[in-house]
Design a protein around this nucleic acid. Sequence first.
DNA 1: CCTTAGCTGTGCAAAATATCACAAGTATTT
DNA 2: AAATACTTGTGATATTTTGCACAGCTAAGG
Lengths: 207, 207
Amino acid sequence: MKNTRIPDETIRRLPLYLRGLQFFADQELTNVSSEKLADFLHISAALIRKDFCYFGDFGTRGVGYDVQTLVKQIREILKLSTPRKAILVGAGNLGRALLAYPGFAAYGFEIVAAYDSDPEKIGTKINQTLILDIKTLSKLKRDGIGLAIIAVPAEVAQSVADLIIKSGIRGILNFAPTYLSVPKRVKVISIDIAIELGRLPYYLESE
Amino acid sequence: MKNTRIPDETIRRLPLYLRGLQFFADQELTNVSSEKLADFLHISAALIRKDFCYFGDFGTRGVGYDVQTLVKQIREILKLSTPRKAILVGAGNLGRALLAYPGFAAYGFEIVAAYDSDPEKIGTKINQTLILDIKTLSKLKRDGIGLAIIAVPAEVAQSVADLIIKSGIRGILNFAPTYLSVPKRVKVISIDIAIELGRLPYYLESE
DNA sequence: CCTTAGCTGTGCAAAATATCACAAGTATTT
DNA sequence: AAATACTTGTGATATTTTGCACAGCTAAGG
């Protein structure tokens, strides 16, 4: 199985598995079956097993998976084992909320700087992070910073992306509601709140 | 084509199409082809046409689609035409950012109240919205409120969901990183920042 | 040691989704 | 009015993703 192409959907689920495993680890359980994990996450056990089996034999037949070992292996696959420095661009409402978001640390992300273009904001501190002038952004790679979170208005998102890519950013988590055109070596993952919101009413039963 | 099952993926793209059409409307364009829209959104033109064709004949062969008409029809499909009242539960960092988020209004959502359990926050105002005690949450349906945005910690998300569903909520936009168990008549759409974040490093080229 | 119960790994089938390719209709030009 | 250039709508095909079912390994109990 090891030489098959790994579906994107599988990669998407790996962080979900980490969360599920954390739940079992918190309960002092050392072993978990695909079925238990499936019940907790509300996906099928076969899918979980298939996902794991793309990467090798993680479990023991008749027994299940060792929680800690599995966590380690998934983190390895996702390349979460090495800590990564990130910057935040855009210190608006969403940006400020993200600065306080505890989830980053869980994956070894450290937000080392925040940037904005508003003179009112520049120089102020949010959650111990100083807001810097976006014009001073350059040569991030020199400081070992490879990731960026974009939380700016859609109109300026592309120019921000261009700028930070030039400075060495290779991974972007984009909250701006727009497509970002980037070189192949750069990966963009977009979270679009409006898109999710816009399809909610469709599913409402019209009483 | 009208009697085929409509793929979820199609529904997911409809709000995206609205965004694209807005772009062309802003340029005073009255007509747009599937190809133009496809170029802007970076998806295939055939896919766009197929998506539309599930709902009927929206375009004119040799011509394209009338921007305004198409907007109206998509909004109709997504049930965005009728304004909807929503509440926000959880006035933490993310909750407060969401209160200021302009995207809700664009889809006819009006956040009429915010709830929290923290005595420090209750009674204060954020963006003209008063924070109310979550204990006072009841009988929302009576006031015509059908949607809720959950932005509370994962540990309490399920109990919040249970509570608001009892009060009449039928649609939930969930930001808590957990599965919500709800009756069939209730629709949950989850946005999970950590999950998206966790898979970003996987795609980084290891130099 | 044998039997039974449990669980993984995975080939194969099924379902869901996306792409292709072109007939059919529209506008424009000559 | 005929030829040309566009563009949609959609059946057919390809690809991607998920589910099924069971062989094969493990552990425990008698």
